[in-house]
Nucleic acid binder design. Structure first.
Lengths: 194, 194
DNA sequence: CTGAGTTTTCAGAATTTCCTGAAATTACCA
DNA sequence: TGGTAATTTCAGGAAATTCTGAAAACTCAG
């Protein structure tokens, strides 16, 4: 039915689905839409994947809830068509944002809530301290994320491909701002750049 | 049974468990161990959470499989005790590593596999190009991750708290390496540092 | 309006996952 | 080696989730 590479990809996404927070149907539908050169309508998805019409309808709704799939209308066709963004970085941003919303935000708000309450006796002192550690960590991470997600794709990609080498750049900068003279010395500069 | 803050935290982790790739039992056991000031043995967990002994045993095994919990032996006590690392950054590293192993590595290897196969006719050209896009993105991300995970905690935290401001540092560096004279000029340097 | 085409809802069947108690296994002491 | 404490395994019951078909609801051209 599906050509072999497409089939393999779709089946893999179906299997992985559960690890990514949705089910087989949703995973396969997403994979199919991701690969499709054109938006697909629900019946085309039914034909290709063999799920019931209602299951596909629910799967599409869930994918729209994740903002991973958008509704497209074709001229002279009453049926709804669905597509994934063609830009993969856009997809990544959406995925991360939605997973954060589901996986970390609820915990963040519970931890903030609990941090404000008085510990019920000395027994909970330690527990509350542990929660505070976790809260600090999550807040550090989400602040970083909120910051980074505002970067445009080009800079983001540049930053990613630099990897841990940013470290060196930072240390380089420290040196410069610390003692300007060193920077003016070409030999020292070359050493810093490695 | 459990003091109120502890209880709230444990129940929350139980609920979140399914979103994080494990079940209620595992989530609650982890939460309890995380908060505990001392390693706990299986019976203590049974007492506090009310799950069956066998369920706790399986949950602990799963947590050990994730490397999130380690076995501890107390002197003069035959029973196994369990603890989470006390350092929260260590926990984060483990969690990310294990999730990557489960959630991205399988897809990475499938995509590499499929990238090598010849498309079955022109119908699959587009599909294979899409897969290639995804592969490139995942490889970029995992390379970045492999790089960053080698950083020590101190530098990592520094980098995180810098957030998108690294950007400025990078541009600052570009200017310096591009035209040294400008850097030597204190006025221009001040402008770059913002 | 009407009615064909399309999408959504939803009760319950099918499937999967979770959890338990009983039995088996392991570890260790005397 | 026998006995006891501790842990693990596992078959099957309980619970949760996924999936379906039928019916309801919606949409729009005529």
């Amino acid at each position: 039915m599906l050509p072999p590479l497409t089939q393999a990809f779709v089946l893999h996404f179906g299997e992985m689905g559960s690890r990514w927070g949705f089910n087989r149907t949703v995973g396969q539908i997403y994979a199919l839409l991701f690969l499709a050169p054109e938006p697909l309508n629900a019946d085309q998805i039914v034909d290709q994947l063999g799920f019931s019409r209602s299951n596909v309808s629910m799967g599409l709704k869930e994918l729209q809830g994740w903002n991973l799939v958008r509704l497209v209308h074709k001229p002279h066709d009453r049926r709804d068509h669905f597509a994934t963004p063609s830009d993969i970085w856009t997809i990544l941003r959406t995925l991360v944002e939605e997973r954060k919303k589901r996986e970390v935000d609820p915990t963040l708000s519970v931890l903030r809530e609990l941090a404000m309450q008085a510990p019920a006796g000395p027994a909970e002192q330690h527990a509350q301290a542990r929660m505070a550690d976790m809260l600090t960590l999550i807040e550090t991470l989400t602040r970083w994320y909120d910051d980074v997600k505002r970067m445009d794709d080009k800079r983001l990609i540049k930053l990613l491909s630099l990897g841990a080498k940013v470290q060196r750049v930072l240390e380089f900068k420290d040196k410069i701002t610390g003692r300007t003279k060193t920077v003016a010395d070409p030999a020292a500069r070359a050493a810093n750049e490695g």
